[in-house]
Amino acid sequence: MRWAWAFVLSFGFWLLLTWPPGWQELSVGLVAAVVATTFFGRMLRLKTVRRLFDPRRYFWAICYVLVLIYRIFVANLDVAYRVLHPEMPIKPGIVKVKTVLQNEVAKTVLANSITLTPGTLSVDITDDGYLYVHWINVRAMQEEEASSYIVGRFESLLRRIFE
């Protein structure tokens, strides 16, 4: 079942990418989907597939994407300001923050979102839920304070989507 789903998802993705389909696209896609399924199919969990059909999660996912787009714009204006300012106002450092998220996919999305938000870049994550984050303008060195600055605004939305 898992393998069938992995095949359907990867082949469907290929079809969207190469639309309209001809025999060349279909045959190459078939091979590519089989290869992808063979190597990565075991990573797919049926629980994840079932979540694809839960409309509430889509609602929160759309909210999340909107928040993320806003933050990406702010992040870019922030970079523009720091880079174009003659004195380059930066105060960089690596801080440690804690996340309450348990789900692996949620943690991955959180780390990626941190990288796209103003001034922060994920460097490493530990098994017990700590993230090391490079911060271009350190405002709080303590764990709790830094956590609320960096992960606070994403956690509640991500938990609704993934957990």
Partner: peptide, 10 residues
């Protein structure tokens, strides 16, 4: 690290 920050976001 600072360079990665700028490069990734923009």
């Amino acid at each position: 690290y600072n360079r990665l920050q700028a490069a990734t976001k923009t």
